[in-house]
């Protein structure tokens, strides 16, 4: 437990000292929010069920935060630590892989929640953010979806032979998801065909789950089920794929 706490604190500090990761996780979603807000504003619109553009964009951008952490930070950081022989040094100690991974996941969750909090504060200050849901439910769903994507991120890291491949693979997964899932471009404005195809993407289900809770429509059970499957399958595949060197 002692080493788990130390590992968590150290991982957190290391993240804060990494300017690029810091920017993408905490600043990039904020910039998107400001851009969207300045272009489209937050006037209530029928297409968004009486909510404004920003009201539906915030739960969407929550998925962007999840994606940058789980599909950009996790694969590269993990594969690089392996490649640079950092994990090799840790393995020559009594530290267990479970403690190491648990500490990392906790730090990634804290960062995701911090990014989300920044987004909500900024959207409230500048665009009068509306919210009709339950904060506890939204937070729980957000953490759950983050864990599911983090498992996928570890799977990518385990399968990729080098950190460079891990980076490219993460981007290849993340960027299409970012534009097709409703995370940045509202699903409501997409052509029917694209929207139906996009429904199969796990990030679309994340956006639908979070937006449903955000608008006070309760839990979107099919979306929840898909994320649960992603979490279980991702974790089951990622665990044996983990390599120390």
């Amino acid at each position: 437990m002692h080493s788990f706490l130390k590992l968590s604190v150290v991982q957190f500090k290391l993240f804060l000292r990494e300017p690029v990761a810091f920017f993408f996780t905490l600043v990039f979603p904020l910039l998107l929010l400001l851009l969207f807000g300045l272009v489209w504003g937050n006037e209530p619109a029928a297409i968004y069920g009486g909510f404004g553009y920003i009201d539906q964009a915030v739960p969407g951008l929550a998925a962007v935060i999840i994606g940058t952490i789980a599909l950009m930070s996790v694969p590269v950081a993990t594969a690089a630590a392996r490649e640079q022989k950092i994990l090799r040094r840790f393995r020559a100690t009594p530290m267990r892989a479970q403690s190491y991974l648990a500490a990392q996941v906790v730090v990634y969750l804290v960062l995701a929640l911090a990014g989300m909090a920044l987004l909500i504060v900024a959207a409230s200050l500048f665009f009068g953010l509306r919210f009709s849901g339950n904060w506890f439910a939204v937070t729980a769903a957000f953490v759950f979806c983050t864990m599911a994507f983090v498992a996928v991120g570890y799977l990518v890291a385990g399968l990729a032979p080098t950190s460079r491949v891990a980076q490219v693979a993460g981007q290849l997964i993340f960027f299409p998801l970012m534009f097709l899932s409703g995370a940045t471009i509202p699903l409501q404005v997409m052509p029917d065909g694209v929207r139906q195809a996009a429904a199969w993407l796990p990030m679309t289900q994340t956006v639908l789950l979070l937006q449903g809770l955000w608008f006070g429509q309760g839990w979107n059970l099919p979306a929840l089920a898909m994320m649960a499957v992603l979490l279980v399958v991702g974790a089951l595949l990622a665990a044996p794929a983990f390599r120390w060197e």
């Binding site: 080493s3 706490l5 150290v10 000292r17 630590a81 022989k85 950092i86």
Partner: peptide, 20 residues
């Protein structure tokens, strides 16, 4: 052949390893 994270300070490395 071994390394530590680039941005880990000397004292942090010792403090962390001691906790194991």
């Amino acid at each position: 052949h071994a390394a530590l994270p680039d941005r880990l300070a000397v004292w942090e490395a010792l403090d962390l390893f001691a906790s194991f």
